[in-house]
Design a protein around this nucleic acid. Structure first.
Lengths: 345, 345
DNA sequence: ACATATAATGTGCACGTACACATTGATATA
DNA sequence: TATATCAATGTGTACGTGCACATTATATGT
């Protein structure tokens, strides 16, 4: 049983109200009395009862999530699942989640949604900063309004974010390289194929490729494999044919796709019965079937659901329980393959 | 703002007490009234206010953990870390953790500690059932006393446990086989070396080995590798020499140690500068250095800290928030290697 | 019809906190 | 001396729930 305000008051020979004023530093207490009460608080290690506190405050918090729009089976569905799950678990604490979806290909859309978001006056904001410049503006605004915000997936160093939840892209690429290397085993050529669905410069992709190349640069030159890099834009017609052409003509032993769109390559490998080892990212539905059948050899997961869950949970911790929040949260790089696929789903 | 019992009562034209009886299924309510109230509860999606609930109950719960004794750096330190972390996070909810450590090699010790545990009259029990027969007796007792209990690490199917948190040992072995297979790549011999620190039959070890063998049985006979099995008892003097002898004489390309004691093999490989690929289990401190240096190629992790955290958290959920608890919780089989080691630590 | 048992329903209190409001005591001013 | 001022302290209420206890309605037996 913890000490209560009542006990403190009895020990100090004052009323509940006086203790209350000291605890909340509301003033109107004689210095002598205040010191006496503070001392007793210290000695007894008083901690407010969170139930009574929660009951009497009974505030309703709203967390806004500024996340890319998605179709079923896309990557961004997964962080949303985690966000939803956390929101549901914590709904009894009167903390709610509100989405503001934007089109990844349209920076204006991000800007517009930012404004709508700000007008809703949330108690916290979760941002997926895929559109850098506009996000920077939003962060400044939030900072000014003293609304705490978190990044998910990737972060913007120069802002005063409360927390970041994501992965280390460079290391992800390095790990992919190691896996490919163990698969093709000293013979053959390797392709890096980026399949982008927007024309923008993408930090995450870039860093993964850097990490991938770094791994091979560090190897003995004897073990080095030939690497070729390709970039395909899904907005261009016939991108599918082009991809097929590359896969068939280059006589590659292994392919690395540094994004969740690796299933496109898997489909072609399956259809054309090519003998190519394949490594990609993310455990999305469209990839799962190819992992199960062994066409995708390895996928590197980044626990997107957990990312979503943590992002929301951090606001609960911060706003409701008043706990400190870890600022940078790097989640493990999960290696997923046929044999351990089941327990990651 | 969520609906309250008061509102439900007003809508149903009854008193608070009647609604309360329906919610807690305490009987003494006319069927007609009960149905009416149930319908309203359903419609409004009533959820009890956790603060008010906690305030009025304000019980102090004690969870007992019956876990093997350990030295620093041993496997069982890790679930304890998770348990402690959960206990600390949830301390404000008046739920405490009390350990009862036993000696793995001494079934009598388990029995004795079981009795001490029962006398402490806990509100929930977490059991690591490494001593099967004695655990069975304890479970029956707990069942009779209506004290809920959970298993961690491995489970006993025939008991009425509240939840289990652990891994799929068979699949763990299968995954290890796949990794070894990709490492030695169609040439050479593979050894399975069990290093036991107690003389007892160990279910987990057995199942991992079964899974390991199963993987190779399923391969085309052309790709099959020669496999030899060894078992070493650490209680026998000179076990270290024997191990060294095996590693040096058998001309193996790969070794699988189906437990956390893989670091013993790693040490010998390092000292004797052998060229043997090595796969084992668990991310304990003694293994980490060998993963970092690449002597252990892969380790399969089972998130022991998370196991501990979940085990405790499940009791919080069950006893305090009244939520339903998932009965079987299989954690992912993490593949840990030099390149992704950092983010698993 | 009446007493009595029992089923059904209602009432009141406690939990610990936050905050609005009320009261007390001391000092200064007319 | 009476009164206004203001600092210091005290009191009361609400939050929503769980449970003990009180009350009312209905059925049963004589």
């Amino acid at each position: 049983m913890n000490t209560t305000i009542k006990e403190i008051a009895r020990k100090a020979n004052v009323s509940l109200g006086t203790v209350d004023r000291v605890i909340h530093d509301r003033g109107k207490v004689a210095k002598k009395t205040k010191d006496k009460i503070l001392k007793i608080l210290e000695e007894t290690g008083y901690k407010p009862n969170i139930y009574a506190r929660g009951l009497v405050l009974n505030k309703s918090y709203t967390i806004a999530a500024l996340i890319p729009d998605y179709n079923k089976g896309d990557y961004w569905e997964l962080p949303s699942l985690g966000l939803n799950s956390a929101a549901q678990h914590l709904s009894q604490y009167n903390i709610k989640l509100e989405y503001f979806h934007f089109d990844q290909n349209n920076p204006d859309c991000f800007k517009e949604k930012s404004h709508v978001l700000l007008r809703s006056n949330p108690d916290g904001v979760i941002i997926a900063p895929v559109v850098n410049f506009e996000a920077s503006y939003l962060c400044k605004k939030l900072n000014h309004l003293k609304i705490p915000f978190s990044f998910i997936d990737s972060k913007m160093e120069e802002t005063e974010y409360m927390s970041f939840i994501g992965q280390d892209s460079f290391q992800s690429g390095k790990l992919a390289a190691k896996l490919i290397n163990s698969l093709v085993y000293e013979k053959g050529k390797i392709l890096i194929i980026s399949i982008r669905n927007n024309s923008e410069f993408n930090k995450t992709l870039q860093k993964r490729i850097e990490g991938f190349n770094y791994f091979f640069e560090e190897l003995d030159s004897a073990q080095k494999l030939e690497i070729e890099e390709f970039s395909i834009d899904q907005n261009i017609s016939n991108w599918d044919k082009e991809l097929k052409e590359i896969l068939k003509s280059r006589n590659a032993s292994g392919v690395y796709v540094p994004s969740s769109t690796v299933y496109h390559v898997a489909r072609i490998i399956e259809d054309s019965q090519l003998k190519i080892k394949l490594v990609g990212n993310d455990l999305i539905k469209k990839n799962i079937q190819y992992i199960a059948s062994g066409i995708i050899d390895y996928v590197i997961g980044q626990r997107p659901e957990q990312q979503g869950y943590l992002a929301f949970d951090n606001f609960y911790k911060y706003l409701i329980t008043g706990q400190k929040v870890t600022r940078d949260n790097y989640l493990p790089l999960d290696i997923v393959t046929k044999e351990n696929l089941y327990y990651y789903k």
